[in-house]
Design a protein around this nucleic acid. Structure first.
Length: 588
RNA sequence: GCGCCCGUAGCUCAGGGGAUAGAGCAUCGGUUUCCUAAACCGGUGGUCGCAGGUUCAAAUCCUGCCGGGCGUACCA
């Protein structure tokens, strides 16, 4: 049940005789900002009164008279300059919450018109170890895919690995010139990482016009690395063999991380997969005069003042624009999606703007292309973390630290509930709590803001964190253990819900908002809408837990009712966290 | 130069036309015969970068300025 949508629909009906464009005003119905005003508020009377040259309270009264929701709402009140304050009837609220227990969708109906989404996320350069910079794309993309799927859409996840670009030229150059063969035999992934960083460091830096350091394109090593890339792309046997030798180790490394993060993909078509299609793309774009030769390269031009996008370099190598174009065509042919979502750092905004522009000119007009951009990862001091240096801030060690921090908190906790657990169970709890903390720290932040990487903040386990939700969940489950409650029976035959005190009512109201929170998160592609909702829910539940005895409730009916509210809360928390890719534990 | 983004409490950030601007952390104080204190309750803390404008109503929209980040032809 989506309460907000119901109220807005009814408001729109009520407005149909009053306003010319009711839809423009029905959106002005929102959850109340202050609970003293009620549960929801409609702010449309003021602008409408202005338009009709009437007094706002008069219009508000007219709206209220036409709003036929007597079974849903208490009589609405009009306050201040013309706010219409709405409060749900307790009986109605109780019935709706009870209805949520049926099935496993928690009142969230699948969308009426399912769409097909391709979600392109994570996409690391596999030539180097995964870095905290890869975290955002990976977990935001995974969360969006989970959410869209739950809402009933068709979702294809595709990890567009960087397995064919310049970074492999660097590896090839490093392998040929600086290889430590015994190190490679012992730890191929580690040696490849070392080579990558080593070669990068050899390259000269120049100071540009803005006085900043940047890489010198004329540096001999940079040129040599580019030449290795070009040879690989043109089918050089030696380079191709080396590449094939490197790849399994690269896969192994990223797979290990994905297993730990509980992230998986339907497809892993890296850049190399599209390599055979690239020459065709360039040929076609030239044929249609979308691309032209320019300064020895092949480029697509935009406005006078805008810089072009290269689809083939002077040395013959293709660029990631070319690969992305081939990828779009492949995805269209393969899955015929309504939309492709690219979960990528905002710094690639221009690339996607150009890419989408080229796709339109190429003739693909219907497909929705979205750059789901997110702020870049900054270091503790606020400067962007360089992914090129390759040192420090490795994803793997971050996860280890998070799990260790969770273990420390756990060991300090003297709770009777957890004192008897086996080592294996404890390790599992540390892992779930630690990884959850890292994921949540990222997901709870507004996607579009820059992300200041703070180990302390990421490992925080109080406040608005996954741990807080997991803890609320674990305490909740403990009630059912201690009471020997059969949840299945209760879910099949839910008892009536009684709202006798404010804490019960607030909890019921918050539970009913789950559906809308998911829709907002999906509409804006913002997982933070889910974390915000869960934080409110868990806080509301904590108030309930504190003040409302469940097993020792005054009457059997009240006990049943509260058990139902508890069970529903646990299920919503668990499902909400699940949509974020975060797990729960039964005790902690 | 041009383009995109950001400036809100000591710190990290929500809110992006609506009532007295919110939260977490930090700080100060209180709560455990009671289903997990990884919890709860309360206090302190704000010229919403600055200046104009639009509006019944601006932190929110528009313009300009100041400060910061990022991008801008052969990295991805």
């Amino acid at each position: 049940m989506n309460v907000l949508a119901l109220l807005q629909r009814k408001l729109q009906e009520a407005l149909s005789g009053l306003a010319n464009d009711p839809a423009a005003y029905s959106g002005m119905l929102k959850p109340a900002q202050d609970t003293r005003f009620g549960d929801y508020q409609a702010n449309c009377a003021m602008p409408l009164a202005k338009q009709l040259d009437k007094k706002p309270p008069e219009i508000a009264r007219a709206i209220v008279e036409r709003l036929h929701l007597e079974d849903v709402l208490e009589p609405p009140t009009i306050a201040g300059p013309g706010f219409i304050n709405l409060k749900l009837r307790d009986e109605w609220l109780a019935r709706q919450v009870r209805a949520m227990t049926k099935g496993d969708r928690l009142g969230v109906a699948p969308v009426e018109n399912p769409r097909t989404f391709v979600v392109d996320f994570s996409s690391p350069n596999v030539a180097k170890p995964m870095h905290v910079g890869h975290l955002r794309s990976t977990i935001i993309g995974d969360a969006l895919a989970r959410l869209l799927r739950f809402l009933g859409h068709n979702v294809v996840t595709d990890n567009h690995l960087g397995d064919w670009g310049t970074q492999f030229g660097i590896l090839l150059y490093g392998y040929k010139n600086f290889l430590d063969a015994s190190a490679f035999a012992a730890d191929p992934v580690g040696e490849l990482a070392r080579l990558y960083v080593h070669v990068r460091k050899q390259m000269k830096k120049v100071v540009n016009a803005q006085g900043e350091e940047e890489e010198d394109a004329n540096d001999p090593i940079a040129q040599a690395a580019r030449a290795e890339t070009a040879k690989l792309h043109s089918g050089d046997t030696e380079n191709l063999n080396l590449w094939q030798q490197f790849m399994p180790h690269c896969y192994e490394e990223i797979e290990r991380i994905y297993r730990r993060l509980d992230v998986c993909f339907d497809h892993t078509h890296g850049e190399s997969f599209y390599q055979p299609m690239l020459a065709d793309v360039v040929r076609e774009l030239r044929l249609h005069n979308i691309a032209q030769e320019s300064e020895g390269a092949v480029a697509v031009f935009f406005g006078e003042k805008d810089s072009p996008a290269l689809i083939q370099k002077r040395d013959g190598a293709f660029t990631y624009t070319t690969t992305d174009l081939a990828t779009i065509r492949y995805r269209l042919e393969q899955w015929n999606p309504h939309a492709i979502l690219y979960v990528v750092d905002f710094r690639q905004g221009l690339h996607f703007k150009q890419l989408f522009d080229i796709v339109r000119r190429w003739g693909y007009e219907k497909i929705e292309l979205q750059h789901i951009s997110f702020g870049s990862v900054l270091g503790e001091e606020g400067r962007p973390i360089s992914t090129r240096e390759g040192t420090g801030a490795l994803l793997d060690s971050l996860l280890n630290e998070a799990v260790a921090a969770a273990a420390r908190v756990y060991e300090q906790n003297q709770a009777e509930e957890t004192s008897q657990l086996s080592d294996e169970e404890r390790r599992r709890i540390h892992e779930v709590v630690g990884i959850g903390a890292v994921k949540y720290a990222d997901l709870s932040q507004n996607r579009t803001s820059d992300y200041r990487f703070s180990l302390k903040k990421m490992l925080a386990m109080d406040g608005n964190t996954a741990t807080y939700m997991q803890y609320a969940y674990a305490r909740n489950r403990s009630i059912f253990r201690r009471g020997n409650i059969e949840v299945a029976a209760m879910r099949n035959d839910p008892p009536p819900v009684l709202l006798t005190v404010g804490e019960e009512r607030s909890l019921a109201l918050q539970l009913l908002r789950f559906h809308n929170a998911l829709l907002v998160a999906a509409a804006e592609y913002k997982p933070s809408a889910i974390t915000g909702y869960l934080w409110d829910l868990a806080k509301t539940y904590s108030g309930f837990f504190q003040n409302c005895p469940v097993l020792k409730a005054e009457t059997a009916e009240l006990r049943q009712s509260r058990l139902l509210l508890c069970d529903l809360t646990a299920r919503v928390i668990q499902r909400g966290l699940d949509l974020l890719g975060i797990r729960t534990v039964e005790r902690m």
